[in-house]
Structures are given as C-alpha cells and as structure tokens.
C-alpha cells in the first residue's frame, strides 16, 4: 500500500508541476525515480517533522501540492500543532501519508504505534481522514487526492495486504462504499479491517446470520447518509477498526447515529483496541488476536452480542 502511494506520488508529479514530495529521513532509495528525474521537487529532509510540515505549508501557500511521508505518530503526535495551525487553520492542500497505521509496527513497540491517530486527526477542523483497504484502493484514492481542496491524512497499512476492494464500486473521498447490502447486522469498518469484516460476514452467513458491510474509508468527513442508510434495518451495528475504541470510527458512527433525533440509536458494538498502550510486541496479526480483531473472534463476539440483545 505504501509502495502504491509512493508510486502514485511520482505519477502525479510527472503529470502535474504543482506536486512536490517531502520525506523526513525515509528509507534509502525511497522514490528514487522521482529523485532522479524531478530532483527540484523531491525534498528528503532531516528528522524534523515540525519544520517539514511548516515547509509544506509555505509551499502550499504558494500554490504547490505537497505530499509528505513519515511514520504516522511522527506526524500526529510530534507535529500536532503544525498540522493544526499551519495546515488546518490555513486549510491548505497538503497530503500527510502516514506509514504504519494502527499496530503495523507492533514489533517496534508503543512509540511507533498509531492507535489514536484517527481520533486526533478527526478532531481538527478542515482535516480529511482516510484509511483505504488495500493497494488497489490506495491508487484510486491517490488519483482523487490531487484536487482535494484541504489537508488530507492518509493512513497506510502494512503492505501486502489482501486485496479486497473492487474497482467496480468506484472510489470518492467522503463517500462510504456499501460492500454488502444492509442486513440485520451491519458491519461498518475502515482501512484493512474490511478484510476481517468480509471474512467475519462469511462465517456468520454460514450460520444463518446475514451481515451488511459498509467500508467507511473516509473517517472524516463521515458519509453520514450512508451510515444512517446502512444502519436503518439493523438490529445490531458493529464498528471495526485498528484503533482505540474511543475517538475513531466507532465514535464517529455513534455520534452520527445519535445525532439523528428522528429514530432511536440502534445497539452498537464498537470493536477496536482498549484505552491502553499495548504491552506486547509480536506482529500486527498477533495483536489483532490479542485484541479480538481477527475475523473468527469478531464473528464470535457478534453472535454472543446478538444472543444477549433484548
């Protein structure tokens, strides 16, 4: 997915002279083709995130469209004030491509995890927050990103993520994708959790429980109409995210449904990470297991929840 995102930056840069790339001391060889062919628009800066976001703001104020890449928490934790003031207050078209969304960097420990990034970015006025499901969808997002008017936070996954998106369903920033039609259980997910949602839905279907699936790749602005339509026939709404249960997609969906005063908010199960810094290493997959985010665990949890509903 990161590879797809970076390749698309180069493609966009070759097509559009407004596109510039800024990285903060990324891996050797990153975007080598762009560095070779468009060196004046390729900036590999030092380890100074506050500065490179301000630099991007200055370039954007002058009409350029900067694409930035670093590890997610080094954007969202390290340089939050620069993101809020330089990018969001000025509403500038700067794209933050955040490597290692969620628990991708499980082996590297808590400093490198991005488990509150969606919550933090979602809280900023003018910010758009997107987490796509696979590399193919990343290409569609990146093509759309060029003319998006304001700042954009793009959460990357691990790479080599199972391809679950479908070009036929199209892609538009801010437009959630109904992957399976609304049913008694509605799964609303973001990012690579779409793969787990699909598998969980298959497991449940085999036991006679039909699930709708809504892929809310854009966490902000949330596609409120799509969320409400998807939730309307559901006995149970389930949100699924590689993120703290609080503040991210689950919270956004709950707010959206609760804000609809014309009907009662349906029972809503928010699946995600607990309010704690994970204490283990391992892998993204083993952390999913620990926190109950694997498809079979999700299916079990839904079945148990349905049984307990009045």
């Amino acid at each position: 997915m990161r590879k797809a995102a970076l390749e698309m930056i180069e493609t966009l840069a070759r097509r559009d002279p407004r596109v510039v790339f800024l990285g903060s001391d990324l891996g050797a060889g990153t975007l080598e083709g762009m560095r070779r062919d468009l060196p004046e628009r390729f900036f590999m800066e030092g380890i100074n995130e506050a500065n490179f976001i301000g630099m991007a703001a200055g370039l954007a104020m002058e009409g350029f469209i900067p694409y930035l890449n670093t590890i997610a928490p080094f954007f969202t934790r390290r340089a939050l004030e620069q993101i809020a003031v330089d990018l969001c207050l000025h509403n500038l078209p700067v794209r933050l491509i955040a490597s290692g969304g969620g628990v991708v960097y499980a082996p590297l420990g808590a400093t490198h995890l991005a488990i509150e990034d969606l919550a933090v970015m979602r809280a900023l006025p003018n910010m758009t927050v997107v987490a796509v499901s696979d590399a193919a969808e990343m290409r569609r997002l990146m093509a759309e990103s060029l003319d998006w008017p304001g700042p954009l936070y793009i959460r990357l996954a691990k790479g080599g993520d199972r391809e679950v998106s479908d070009a036929a369903r199209g892609f538009a920033i801010g437009k959630a994708i109904p992957v399976r039609p609304p049913a008694a259980v509605e799964l609303i997910c973001t990012g690579v959790m779409l793969a787990q949602a699909l598998e969980a839905a298959d497991l449940l279907a085999a036991q006679g429980i039909e699930c709708g699936i809504l892929h809310a790749h854009t966490v902000k602005p949330l596609d409120r109409a799509a969320v409400r339509a998807a939730a309307a026939p559901a006995r149970l709404v389930v949100t699924l995210e590689e993120h703290l249960r609080d503040g991210g997609l689950g919270s956004a969906v709950l707010e959206c449904l609760a804000d609809d005063l014309t009907r009662p908010t349906p029972p809503l199960l928010r699946l995600g990470l607990p309010d704690a810094f994970p204490k283990e290493y391992g892998s993204q997959d083993s952390m999913f297991q620990t926190f109950g985010l694997k498809a079979a665990q999700v299916a079990d949890r839904i079945r148990a929840t349905l049984k307990a509903l009045p």
Partner: peptide
C-alpha cells in the same frame, strides 16, 4: 516557532 518553517517553504517555492 511556526513562521520560519513556513518561510523556508515559501523561499523554496520562489526558487522552484
């Protein structure tokens, strides 16, 4: 501490 980073970006833009 925000002005100088933005100024660096503007100066690069002028050069570009």
């Amino acid at each position: 501490g925000h002005g100088l980073p933005i100024g660096v970006g503007m100066a690069l833009a002028a050069r570009l």
